[in-house]
Design a protein around this nucleic acid. Structure first.
Lengths: 148, 148
DNA sequence: GCCAAAATCACCCAAAAGTGTGACGACATT
DNA sequence: AATGTCGTCACACTTTTGGGTGATTTTGGC
């Protein structure tokens, strides 16, 4: 801002000096006043426009644009909810694999445990979720924010 | 735009007239030139700023702010994909109810058909999706954009 | 080291789900 | 009239799932 003021003074001074000089050269010219005023007007109009632009250069308008984003990108399983329901980490792990469409046998193979173990885990997680079937468990898991 | 030019000329003319008039009144004043130039400078600076603002009044920078919106709100089942997979409307209906965690018996009751009918529909939809279990059918249905 | 929670596994039984085949009627297309 | 799709249903059979009970081992905290 200070630079602007200084610049203004400088330009004004230069202009006056130039005019002083031209005054001598065109002293007797009839319309020197009009030329003089015109030059000043043009110069300061340009300066004014530039200055005005500087002042308003930062004007921004914030437009809120809603963008659909797949929720899976930002999904994080709600651990607090899980604990509130009393679901253990292992049980939750089985629930996730069930949600991926795996059978008890497949889950058992993947986790290196017996099929019976998977059954007990799934039975317990169904109880805690209040589900009667695995499909319902998946649905409830989603509603509780445990699954994407 | 034409109005602006006319206005400029008008203001310039008025200024010159005023100066002419003041010229007579302060003819002998030592620094009339400086006053004269200063007045012109101030006037046209103001005009320039105003003009500059006029020119840039509509120049707004649009800042896009992205907001995450749950995709579930705007979900619509992909009918084209459904047809591409050869899944009939009825079969799809059963798939939706399966995804909601309903048993075959419950679905049969809801749709007023026999349990066997539900079984055949579900078997066919599993074939078309390439699923071996209903949980897997739900998972694949989501991946295909058929289910939310 | 003790205790509680968690994880593991087995067995039996019942229910649900899934497979395969066949069939019938309605409806649209050819 | 013949064909094809869709929706409906039945029956037999296999597989999967779920419930209940009981037991052992592992683990983490006190």
């Amino acid at each position: 801002m200070k630079r602007h003021v200084l610049l203004y003074g400088l330009v004004g001074g230069i202009l006056i000096a130039v005019l002083k000089w031209t005054e001598y050269r065109f002293l007797v010219i009839e319309h020197s006043l009009e030329i003089y005023g015109g030059l000043t007007a043009v110069t300061f109009t340009v300066l004014g426009i530039w200055f005005g632009l500087k002042l308003t250069a930062t004007k921004e308008r914030v437009v809120v644009k809603e963008v659909l984003v797949p929720a899976s990108e930002t999904f994080a399983p709600d651990q607090r909810k899980r604990e509130k329901l009393g679901i253990t980490p292992r049980e939750f792990e089985i629930l996730e694999l069930i949600a991926q469409g795996m059978s008890n046998r497949e889950i058992a193979g993947k986790l290196y445990v017996s099929e019976n173990t998977v059954k007990t885990h799934s039975s317990r997680v169904f109880d805690k979720l209040g589900a009667k079937r695995r499909t319902q468990a998946v649905q409830l898991g989603k509603e509780f924010g445990l699954l994407p």
